[in-house]
Design a protein around this nucleic acid. Structure first.
Lengths: 281, 281
DNA sequence: ACGGAGGTGGAATAAAAATTCCAATTATTA
DNA sequence: TAATAATTGGAATTTTTATTCCACCTCCGT
């Protein structure tokens, strides 16, 4: 007595539901595919809306929603909706909320509170990178760097760890690079070898270290394409750069981590490495 | 015609609702405080449950929920619930989900996909730090480091950026430190000054760089307390350390970012700085 | 072009849920 | 301690929401 519908094998979690829908993508009749597409694109709506409201937004009848649910194996729409609701429960809380909670925390200046705060700030910063970076800009910068013979790395003080990480990673990827920084004061001599066929990555955050600015200026004037990683559109690095990226690191008690910047730097390095292998082929 | 209830001033978002409830905490009669407490502690339940199910879990009658909502200014329970639901909409999706989406992405090996993948992995790593680090262990390590005269920093290759960041940050915090790394091969001489009144932070990830191990061993044998940051409980650093922390960085296409480690390092540095000022007082 | 199976819209119905109301209980004040 | 007000529990009611059902349409094969 199951009306030709497979009951009992309905997906129990969102992940498998998604897979089920995807694998049957082409088997659904018109209105049901409409629902399928809407469901996967508007998972939140599916979790919160009523059958009527969802039906309206998906331009179908409520009864179609019920049929859709049944065609997947659920008893009705309510069972299907339960899966979408369950999904939301597993989500972590937002970082704003977590930082908020820390601010009101009783033992706020214990070591553990500091750890929690720094982590939350880092989390927030990393999160914001994905939305802040434009994809065309990133692609262009990658292409420019991949075309370079040698990549010069400019950074001082707080930004230095990022440059040293780039030096390490690029080296691993067999991308020739030169860290413009030494205890001997021979930066100028290092840069003297730079030509327009090379490129540079300059990293500096407020307060912008004077030597970094100077190095970036020298390279820029030598016709070397400069890609900048900085923290503001008004950074003095911007006018010296062909490509620039703004990474906003959230602060905790005045301290800014480098989590977002270092993740971005890694992505940049990998992307350049990938692009290189693609060119060679 | 408002039955003595202030309508129209009901909080519109979760944040202000929370504040409203908190500030009236003591004005609520018994059952209503019960609901208030349950609502703030089980925000997810409030979003998804029905009046009946929530009432049951909070050990009150459904009508009490309605009264609670009205006492805050809403027309009824449904309006109150809408606020809890809205809150869930703003949450970001989980990192598992995002990585999953990237794997199935059409343009999976474009530069942008790499950026997205690295960011998601970093996000995941940072997230996991907070749950992986024990609070007592952290406090103890901070105390040990705060008591030290000089903090020696041991790291090579991939871990080096973290050590250099620690050197910078600790310096800013006026905590005396010594980066055990130089282009001159004088590391042994640097470490010769170390005494049991000092301390060390050793950072190494698989594959563990031989010089780092050697340095950590020398310091450990000189009676210097060693705090290690590494990626496994079986790391060769562990037996050499008084305190050790395991930071699991998620990888993207085989590359591991340092986002989590660097956030952890910053937290450690700040906590040590804080502890120092507390001791001096 | 015809017949039929599968698909669809929409009204009718059933189920579930929120809200209201009132009697009972518990606090408060004189 | 009695009178009164506030709070509460729970059944009754209303509203909202999901589901079912059936007439009609569409597309496919002959």
């Amino acid at each position: 007595m199951n009306n030709g519908v497979n009951t009992g094998d309905a997906p129990k979690n969102f992940h498998s539901l998604r897979e089920r829908i995807l694998e049957r993508r082409d088997l659904f009749p018109k209105r049901l595919s409409q629902v399928a597409a809407f469901a996967l694109d508007n998972a939140d709506e599916m979790a919160f809306g009523t059958a009527a409201s969802i039906a309206a937004r998906a331009h179908v009848q409520p009864s179609t929603l019920v049929r859709f649910a049944q065609s997947i194996g659920y008893a009705g729409f309510s069972d299907l909706q339960a899966v979408f609701r369950e999904r939301l429960r597993e989500r972590p809380s937002t970082y704003d909320e977590r930082l908020e909670a820390l601010r009101n925390d009783a033992n706020r200046d214990s070591s553990v509170a500091i750890l929690g705060g720094v982590i939350a700030a880092a989390q927030y910063s990393v999160e914001s990178v994905s939305s802040a970076i434009g994809s065309q800009a990133f692609e262009k910068a990658v292409k420019a760097l991949a075309a370079a013979e040698t990549i010069f790395l400019v950074a001082q003080r707080r930004s230095f760890p990022i440059a040293s990480y780039l030096a390490y990673t690029l080296g691993k990827l067999k991308v020739k690079n030169q860290l413009v920084s030494s205890p001997f004061g021979i930066e100028s001599e290092q840069m003297a070898f730079a030509t327009p066929r090379d490129a540079a990555i300059a990293i500096s955050f407020s307060p912008y270290a004077a030597p970094s600015m100077e190095h970036a200026r020298v390279l820029s004037q030598a016709g070397v394409p400069v890609v900048s990683i900085t923290d503001s559109a008004f950074s003095p690095l911007v006018p010296l750069s062909q490509h620039w990226f703004e990474i906003a690191e959230a602060d905790f008690a005045g301290f800014r981590s480098l989590s977002a910047s270092i993740a971005f730097a890694l992505a940049l390095a990998i992307a350049v490495g990938e692009e290189r292998t693609r060119i060679k082929k």
